[in-house]
């Protein structure tokens, strides 16, 4: 087994543990490359099936190609697709830059709060009806006790401390200083009522591993990752006001792999194009403790 085989086997094991022990399980799908690899790994783990819903937090500031890609794939792979949103913040303009708040507050409103309440089931959830092809209000308000997330340890500092199975308390908070032990392949699959567990099958993967795997498995990704002729592409996908493309002429997965391996991005952090990381000297970590991814 080579490195990708090993990474894959471990992720599949983690996904199966999660499916075995969590009755109310979902997977967060950000439409980006990482959580799309995660989705592919689920199909590998469950022999072509994805036996839990995929939850997307729609900020309504996502680059439009992301949403059409999401819905096309959901139809093609017959996914149980759900989205949630912060309708109030959007209606009241509590957003950036058009609205009246800064970047981090916008992230808090549209991502952290929307995620928290969508997972808890106390804000409306919309489910894709495969017969009509439309999203409909989901009658189920059951909270999710297990949430599968595509976080990687190499993304930025705080993520390098994550566990594969990481508990969140009743307030959705992550206690970095008091995490449960993980031994060998035994994880925290027991949880007190009212708490939930974030599950991180991609923790050991690097950005390069993700692209190598996409190349090997021929996984379809959003075309925004490739240069469309303007000499730029997105390296990391997010909301359009806060995510900038990088200068690059990579037009294919193979060219991206080459660029990451020894080219211009071999030593440049992936989230360099994300503005919110730079504010507050660690804004992402603050958000993370408060329950955002």
């Amino acid at each position: 087994m080579d490195k990708l085989d090993q990474l894959e086997a471990k992720s599949v094991y983690i996904l199966r543990e999660a499916y075995r022990d969590f009755r109310s399980l979902c997977m967060l799908w950000s439409i980006g490359k990482d959580s799309t690899v995660l989705l592919w790994l689920a199909r590998r783990a469950f022999f072509g099936h994805v036996p839990f819903p995929l939850v997307h937090i729609d900020t309504h500031f996502k680059i439009p190609e992301m949403i059409s890609y999401r819905d096309n794939l959901a139809r093609e792979w017959q996914l149980d697709m759900i989205y949630g949103e912060n309708a109030q913040a959007l209606a009241e303009g509590e957003t950036f830059p058009a609205g009246k708040v800064d970047r981090l507050t916008c992230c808090r409103n549209l991502k952290r709060d929307a995620l928290k309440h969508t997972l808890a089931g106390d804000w409306p959830r919309y489910r894709l009806d495969h017969t009509s092809g439309q999203y409909q209000l989901d009658p189920s308000r059951e909270p999710y006790s297990g949430v599968i997330v595509g976080a990687r340890a190499d993304e930025e500092g705080s993520r390098s401390k994550e566990r594969y199975f990481s508990p969140r308390d009743q307030a959705n908070e992550w206690d970095v200083g008091d995490q449960p032990p993980e031994l060998w392949n035994q994880f925290k699959t027991d949880f007190a009522p009212g708490t939930h567990v974030r599950i991180h099958p991609l923790l050991d993967w690097t950005e390069l591993n993700v692209w190598e795997y996409i190349e090997r498995e021929r996984i379809p990704v959003v075309p925004l990752y490739f240069d469309q002729g303007k000499g730029q592409r997105y390296r990391s996908l997010g909301c359009w006001p806060c995510t900038q493309p990088v200068a690059s002429t990579a037009r294919s997965v193979a060219e991206i792999v080459a660029e990451l391996r020894s080219g211009k991005f071999a030593r440049v952090a992936e989230r360099a194009g994300r503005a919110q990381d730079k504010e507050d000297g660690g804004g992402l970590e603050t958000l993370r403790r408060e329950g955002y991814m």
Binding site: P180, P181, E182, L183, W184, Q186, K188, D190
Partner: peptide, 12 residues
Amino acid sequence: FVIVDNFEIAGG
């Protein structure tokens, strides 16, 4: 093996 006590892995 591990031993779970009160939802936590408490021993190995």
